[in-house]
Amino acid sequence: MNNLTASEIIDRLGGTAEVARICQIKSPSVSEWRSKGIPPARRQFLELLKPEAFGATAAAVVRTFSDKRLSKRELRAKLGLNNDTQLATMLQLRVELVEAWAEEDQVPSIPQVLRLLGIEEPPPSLRP
């Protein structure tokens, strides 16, 4: 991928306020990233969510994840998260639901997970 600066990435994502909204944090934190760099876990999250801002094509990212579905443990590691509570917060799901998923089983193909991985859910008429 391109060697973009943190500022270039933030600008490509829509600016400081938009990145703060996406990450559910305050704008001054994102402003700080422009000089100190985007924290690795946040960068991975943003890269999964908006690969085009990092110079990747969405198709390449989708291929990466659709070739091999991730387990809950792999998804947490890929996003730099330490526990189910953080994963649930990122997916905007109840913690109990995420905790019920087995560690080594594939994460379910629910809309929140598919969006996070950049995979569009098929329209209802095309679902099996």
Results as ranks from 00 to 15, higher is better:
Met1Cys: 12
Ala41Gln: 14
Gly55Met: 06
Pro124Lys: 11
Leu117Arg: 03
Lys26Met: 06
Gln92Glu: 11
Ile10Thr: 11
Glu52Pro: 04
Arg63His: 13
Thr85Pro: 00
Asp67Glu: 15
Ala41Tyr: 04
Arg76Lys: 15
Gly118Trp: 03
Thr5Met: 08
Ile38Lys: 08
Ser29Gln: 15
Gly15Cys: 04
Asp84Ile: 01
Arg43Thr: 10
Lys72Tyr: 04
Ala53Gly: 05
Pro40Thr: 09
Leu91Gln: 00
Pro124His: 10
Arg115Phe: 04
Ser31Lys: 13
Ala59Ile: 04
Pro39Ser: 07
Ala20Gly: 02
Gly118Asp: 00
Cys23Ser: 11
Leu97Glu: 08
Ser109Pro: 03
Ile9Ala: 03
Pro122Cys: 06
Ala20Gln: 00
Glu47Val: 09
Leu114Glu: 10
Ile10Arg: 09
Thr5Ala: 08
Val107Gln: 01
Ala77Cys: 00
Ala56Thr: 05
Gly14Met: 07
Leu49Trp: 11
Gly14Cys: 09
Ile9Asp: 01
Ser7Asp: 08
Leu75Ser: 06
Asp105Ser: 13
Leu13Val: 07
Glu103Gly: 02
Lys68Asn: 14
Arg34Ala: 12
Asp11Pro: 00
Glu8Gln: 14
Pro108Trp: 03
Ala53Glu: 09
Ala41Trp: 14
Leu117Cys: 04
Pro122Leu: 11
Asn3Ile: 11
Met90Gly: 00
Ser125Phe: 07
Glu74Asn: 11
Thr89Glu: 11
Thr16Arg: 08
Leu46Val: 07
Pro124Phe: 06
Ala100Tyr: 01
Phe54Tyr: 12
Leu114Pro: 00
Pro28Cys: 12
Leu49Asn: 12
Glu99Trp: 06
Leu48Gly: 05
Arg63Gln: 15
Ala56His: 15
Gly55Ser: 06
Glu96Cys: 01
Leu87Asp: 08
Ala88Asn: 02
Asn83Tyr: 02
Ile119Lys: 02
Ala17Asn: 09
Pro122Asn: 09
Glu104Lys: 05
Ala77Leu: 09
Ala53Tyr: 08
Lys26Tyr: 03
Ile22Leu: 13
Lys50Ser: 14
Gln106Asp: 15
Thr85Lys: 11
Val95Leu: 03
Pro51His: 10
Glu103Gln: 07
Glu121Trp: 05
Asp84Asn: 15
Ala41Asn: 14
Leu97Ile: 14
Gly118Glu: 10
Gln44Phe: 03
Leu97Val: 12
Glu52Ile: 01
Asn82Trp: 00
Gln92Gly: 04
Ala102Tyr: 04
Gly80Cys: 07
Lys68Trp: 02
Ala60Val: 05
Ser125Pro: 00
Gln112Asp: 15
Pro39Arg: 13
Cys23Met: 14
Ile38Arg: 05
Leu70Pro: 08
Arg94His: 14
Lys26Glu: 14
Glu104Val: 06
Val30Gln: 09
Arg63Asn: 11
Arg127Phe: 10
Arg21Met: 05
Ser71Arg: 09
Glu47Arg: 15
Ala60Phe: 10
Leu97Pro: 02
Asn82Val: 10
Leu46Ala: 12
Asp105His: 10
Glu99Phe: 04
